[in-house]
Design a protein around this nucleic acid. Structure first.
Lengths: 346, 346
DNA sequence: GTGAAAGCGCTAACAA
DNA sequence: TTGTTAGCGCTTTCAC
């Protein structure tokens, strides 16, 4: 399994040059006489020499590595975001190191620690503690300490820290969905799923009420069913809705997964989508396309989102031009089958 | 942004001990008088000292890091597998480094290179070139060279290399699905999606034909519709099937995504599932649960799969006991709504 | 139990 | 263009 270790010294010796010269052809940092260069390259190939990134990172000031902490890689939302990050990073000659925190603050802390130990150039945190409406002060303190050394970019917020924040324009997302439904004649619009201690959900609820007010539409508190973000939460939520004496004509799900549960619950009750009731949701993960009826949903352009996260992290790390502290992703409405005009008899 | 760097020397000096002693409390490698230990710990906390993993990795023989190359992190199949790997690795005190190859062999090669540069203890490759029925000799050559230095574990195969192989017992998976459908009275069973140059798909086709033969059921070549692994592939495939004069009573999709497309195509034609036609698929990703009707599918226990991958990698890396070269994951049938007894008039 | 010193493999001045 | 020489920050013998 182990052939003797070959280092730049091995190569240097055999090529009759100094290790520095080998290093120079490796990094391309300075010009080397072509005969020597070729000779060295030849030996590198011969020995299948692979330079040690650790040793390199020890001397280099920059590792060209961005650390990422994702709340849940299995969630298509984060998976899409991460994918966008990786592509963008590679494009700029950076490598990403990802960790899954499973939405556990303790794990986030330990991942943060590991990333720092690895001396990444910047850290991006997608979801988890940064989603909290009320920032956990202990976590903020830990992150604050880190921001003294390297830039931290988050998808939510972390009050009291100097993180860079890139989040979705939630108000706009709600507007797009509400405008769409209102234009289809819906007035009785329910909200299913989500927790109020999550910033993005809180903002959605707020904006929903504002829009109702603006349009002089009566607010029915019973049309708001919280819960979580899963298929089951959607399913349970719609069951509650459907037991109401005065049914809404449209339902907005907190995400596509919940919408899937809502579709099932609706179908089970014999109602047709969108004829009897319209469904729409946020996130536009690929689930939205797969469902039957396919789902009207709000898209965020994950590719661009990832790119913005990475570019912000790199800019801040390289320190040439400081990126804006707060940036927003503009959502886009994708209309599919699940939403339609309110029926005459509704 | 930059406070002066604090290293073990900073700590050692202030504690009035040698750097070696600081290192000892850091690693717990040897005992240190408790007064000194406490004093050192105090300073570590005071300065928020974070040891440099690169420097550490330079001296240590083992980094306790496993590299992973995934063909597509956005695919719930790989996402679930990766998630299982990470959990298992953490449990054993290891860290994982993931890269997405986007199914591109060139990218796989470069990721392999990066992982080697980082001196990971082992590499796990999930999908991509290792899925090829006919191994790409160039890629095999590259991997062979790597296996001389560190263990490589793959989810498929790589002929001519000494990789550890952990794959799904595809024959068994086909058997489970076929037995299920046969027991429901189905004789006319179609296959939709997948490419024959992919080992797992090839094996599925083979076993399908064997089972038909064994049960003396006529083989209809027109019941096999290849293509790919996407929603669209499923949709197009079922359209072809439904244009046949003699319709099958059941369809097996190559995966859940394709099955989603199949469900749509079937519904569009006015056929009912499972009353008129049964649908089943492989992989049991969470899509299977979300669909309407929910999907009968083959599950692999991704948690265990990930664990086996990691444990094999670690065992091989630590070299204490060599793991088996080839290991299989046993599939399990999950029966849901999409499959039912063949109707009387079919 | 603890310190001195020698690396680990590479890069980056500084000379030449 | 090239070699020499210090490190980078940590671990690990080997003495004491």
């Amino acid at each position: 399994m182990a052939e003797e270790k070959v280092t730049i010294y091995t190569i240097a010796k055999e090529a009759g040059v100094s290790p520095a010269t080998v290093s120079r052809v490796l990094t391309g940092s300075a010009s080397v006489r072509s005969e020597k260069r070729e000779k060295i390259q030849e030996l590198i190939d011969k020995y299948h020499f692979i330079p040690n990134a650790l040793a390199k990172g020890l001397t280099d000031t920059t590792r060209h590595t961005i650390g990422i902490i994702a709340a849940d890689v299995q969630n298509p939302y984060y998976a899409a975001m991460f994918s966008g990050c990786e592509k963008a990073a590679n494009k700029r000659g950076y490598t990403v190191m990802v960790f899954d925190s499973q939405g556990d603050t303790k794990k986030e802390e330990s991942r943060l620690q590991i990333l720092c130990q690895h001396r990444v150039d910047a850290i991006i945190q997608m979801g988890g503690s940064v989603d909290d409406l009320v920032t956990n002060p202990d976590y903020a303190a830990i992150v604050s300490r880190i921001t003294e050394r390297l830039p931290v970019v988050v998808t939510g917020k972390l009050d009291g820290t100097s993180c860079f924040r890139i989040s979705i324009n939630e108000s706009k997302a709600v507007e797009l969905l509400m405008e769409h439904l209102l234009s289809l004649g819906h007035q009785k619009i329910a909200l299913v799923g989500g927790r109020l201690d999550v910033t993005s959900t809180y903002e959605k609820y707020q904006r929903y009420i504002e829009i109702l007010n603006k349009n002089r539409i009566e607010f029915h508190p019973e049309y708001i069913i919280g819960g979580g973000y899963s298929y089951e939460d959607g399913y349970k939520g719609i069951k509650k809705i459907l037991s109401l004496p005065n049914l809404p004509t449209a339902v907005i799900a907190i995400n596509d997964m919940a919408a899937a549960g809502i579709i099932r619950g609706t179908m089970e009750s014999g109602l047709r989508i969108p004829d009897d009731i319209s469904i729409a949701s946020y996130d536009n993960t690929y689930i939205a396309r797969c469902l039957l009826p396919s789902l009207t949903s709000i898209d965020y352009n994950y590719e661009k989102y990832g790119e913005l996260l990475i570019n912000t992290a790199i800019k801040a790390a390289e320190g040439k031009e400081m990126p804006q502290q707060v940036q927003k992703i503009e959502p886009k409405l994708i209309i599919r089958e699940s939403s339609g005009a309110v029926s005459a008899d509704a």
